[in-house]
């Protein structure tokens, strides 16, 4: 059987390994068992500031310390910024005047927050599930504000730096759609799995020819993740073990 085909057992083996590596790399992946079923999913959440105010602004100090966590400033051409800034979407409950009187003792020992405002912070949640019908892993994700409001796909795209956006939207991975999460029943975006096999096959076949074991899920995530802001540190490759299940000899082509 070709290595490019990933069965459910292979998927969970790849996931177990990924979680192990993630633990040593402190990369934040965990395995979440589905309720009352053998199924489960990989999960990771990240936090990043996103320039989604209406005017281009410099990021607060420190964006240089973790550049990969920050989207570039200067995005005057965004189509959907106004949606994000719309007061109706979320924010303070202005209609609740009178609610603010009690419990509002002034507190002198609170530091004033720096220019950075929490409304520009986005939480990203990534899930990796196995698709039986496509026999490939599927990346589900959603992005939401600190209030827990999920972003629309246009808003998600608008948070991708413009210089990457054009390239990403032309890439073969550009097939993002919306679906209910199969285990949680909540709306998620997903990168559609219909071309995953096509894109992974050459990679897996090359690895097979070189008698090299490749973690399908790690390799695939490193390709598909950046599209939706998910980075896989190169260290995963450095940690990559030999085959966890079979020695190279077992996998050798018969003519060798």
């Amino acid at each position: 059987m070709s290595w490019s085909v990933l069965d459910e057992e292979g998927f969970s083996r790849c996931c177990r390994l990924l979680v192990q590596q993630s633990q040593s790399l402190r990369d934040g992946w965990s395995w979440e068992p589905g309720q009352g079923s053998a199924e489960g999913y990989l999960r990771k959440t990240t936090l990043r500031t996103a320039a989604f105010t209406s005017r281009p602004e410099r990021e607060p100090e420190g964006s240089g310390a973790a550049p990969e966590q920050h989207t570039a400033p200067g995005r005057a051409e965004e189509p959907s910024q106004s949606d994000l800034a719309a007061p109706a979407a979320s924010g303070d409950a202005d209609d609740l005047t009178g609610a603010e009187d009690d419990g509002a003792d002034e507190d002198d020992w609170v530091c004033r927050a720096p220019a950075e405002s929490s409304s520009r912070v986005l939480q990203y949640e990534y899930h990796v599930l196995y698709s039986c019908s496509y026999s490939v892993p599927v990346l589900y994700f959603r992005a939401f504000t600190l209030e827990g409001r999920s972003l629309s796909l246009d808003e998600v795209w608008s948070c991708v730096p413009p210089q990457y956006r054009a390239r990403l939207q032309q890439s073969p991975w550009n097939t993002i759609t919306q679906q209910e999460h199969p285990l949680l029943g909540q709306p998620f975006f997903l990168v559609h799995p219909c071309r995953t096999d096509e894109l992974m096959r050459p990679v897996m076949q090359a690895a097979q020819q070189q008698l090299r074991w490749v973690n399908y899920v790690v390799t695939w995530l490193s390709m598909v993740g950046p599209l939706v802001g998910l980075e896989m540190p190169l260290s995963y490759a450095a940690l990559s073990p030999q085959s966890p299940t079979a020695t190279a000899a077992e996998q050798e082509p018969s003519e060798a």
Partner: peptide
Amino acid sequence: NPKGAMGPRMVNLSEC
């Protein structure tokens, strides 16, 4: 709240 005032917040989740 996000305005820096002492008060509750509201989030409109009708879209999701």
